[in-house]
Design a protein around this nucleic acid. Structure first.
Lengths: 263, 263
DNA sequence: TATCATTTGTTCGTATGTATC
DNA sequence: CGATACATACGAACAAATGAT
């Protein structure tokens, strides 16, 4: 009781951890232009001396700055300041239609696809609304030569859909636009929706997609639906978060019962 | 020379770092069901003993498992196994139209907006194609009470647009659908596109959005364009990557010169 | 309410391995 | 080959949060 001063209790403010302070200091110096893109930051040992903190603190600080995307760190070389020139790859998610033909932008060169049979699980299963079902899976790595960006594409064709539209199963690895056309010719009125999320990549994804540092991973699921909004196909695309996904948006006719806007 | 066996040079394979091995082991045990959602993992000290490695190694391993999204870590409590029940908040990015009125889904409750004047910079500046220009900025925090998810919304109205359509500047904080309507009434034929990216959040964003652990941040920019595809407005929405953004997609009439599909 | 044991968070120091130049 | 720099790993200590006593 006597040891606590009520007037102080409001204002207490603990200092941020030292590693965060150091990180902020480094980030500030970079943004201020003290280091130009391409420059090397002082070595860890030098920072230990100049900041007067331990090595673990410096390393944690550098990890933060790297997570901010301001530097690249290379063993044996040092920490290199990134330029804003890290141009974002733009991945166009538009679906084009010319008469009865469909086409989708191709963001790079594709490697040869792998066709397997898998059980539906996780998000694709939920989006396809068909749990406990198997699907034909087509996997393909896509590489954009201009920026050396790698993307992982995967198509899920539920077996029930392959059964009712056998042409899909005949050549699962054909261009996706041909799948769209086949479904349309089978009498479906197609519509699409896309779901985007992001997460920290797993170690194997980091190496497969050549992800540098702590860059997150964007994952987008495109669901192709037919008549009665029945989901038919699910495409998954995983891209480094250095990219930007582009969606064209059209206004949709509101349902009869229009949504009320909350406060 | 004599110390190197040429026949070995092809097969060398360094073992993975111990912290990754430990992380994989923990992740495997979780996925195998050895620990149920809600269970506490063994404490760091116990792992140090059971794995026979140092504390720093265990901590790095736990950081990996946490980055995989398998556990939540709380100081003083321990590491809690997450359930797959971490339902993703779905943020619907549809734009609805009823006759001459627009509406957009409201993902939660809004706090009171802050109106400032800023200079356009970074992605919004590039998307609005109007560098070296000022803009009216409206900032607002949105909270989804069901999942306690926070989102940061921001609107940029370039001064040139505010000048040619003064009604926008009169009440910048009005519902965004009213801005759309005002622009339509001013003679614009509206269209939208949305750009999505992700990155590691800054420390201040982590606290403002109450981000747990190492969850990345998704950022989406919605650009409203008028006649002649002239960009008019830019909305920025930052949401935790635990959310899913949902876009409806309509096929777009292909331009006269249809895109050729590369190999 | 206050205390205490447990658990994670932060920080230091030191040593060794590996990549780069 | 050697010097430099980052990566990994160990040990130790104290701070801060949590939950039970």
């Amino acid at each position: 009781m006597a040891t606590r001063h009520p007037t102080q209790r409001q204002r207490i403010q603990r200092p941020a951890p030292m590693y965060l302070q150091v990180a902020q200091e480094i980030a500030q110096e970079i943004r201020a232009g003290d280091y130009q893109p391409g420059d090397r930051l002082p070595s860890e040992a030098q920072m230990v001396a100049s900041f007067g903190v331990g090595k673990a603190t410096v390393r944690q600080a550098i990890a933060e700055v790297r997570a901010m995307g301001l530097i690249d760190v290379h063993q044996g070389k040092g920490s290199i300041v990134r330029g804003p020139a890290v141009q974002a790859v733009e991945v166009d998610r538009t679906i084009f239609r010319t008469g009865k033909k469909w086409s989708v932008p191709q963001p790079g060169e594709s490697e040869k696809p792998t066709i397997t049979r898998t059980s539906l699980d996780g998000v694709p299963a939920a989006l396809l609304a068909q749990p406990d079902q198997d699907a034909i899976s087509v996997e393909q790595m896509i590489r954009d030569p201009a920026t050396d960006t790698r993307m992982a594409w995967r198509l899920f064709i539920p077996l029930s859909v392959a059964a009712s539209t056998p042409v899909l199963a005949e050549d699962p690895a054909q261009p996706i636009a041909d799948h769209y056309q086949a479904l349309a010719e089978a009498g479906h009125t197609l519509s699409w929706e896309e779901h985007v999320t992001a997460r920290t990549p797993y170690p194997d994804e980091r190496s497969a997609l050549r992800l540098r540092d702590t860059s997150p991973l964007m994952i987008t699921y495109r669901v192709t639906s037919g008549t009665d909004a029945r989901p038919l196909l699910c495409e998954e695309l995983r891209v480094p978060a250095t990219a930007r996904l582009r969606f064209p948006l059209n206004a949709t006719k509101a349902p009869a019962k229009s949504r009320t806007r909350k406060a």
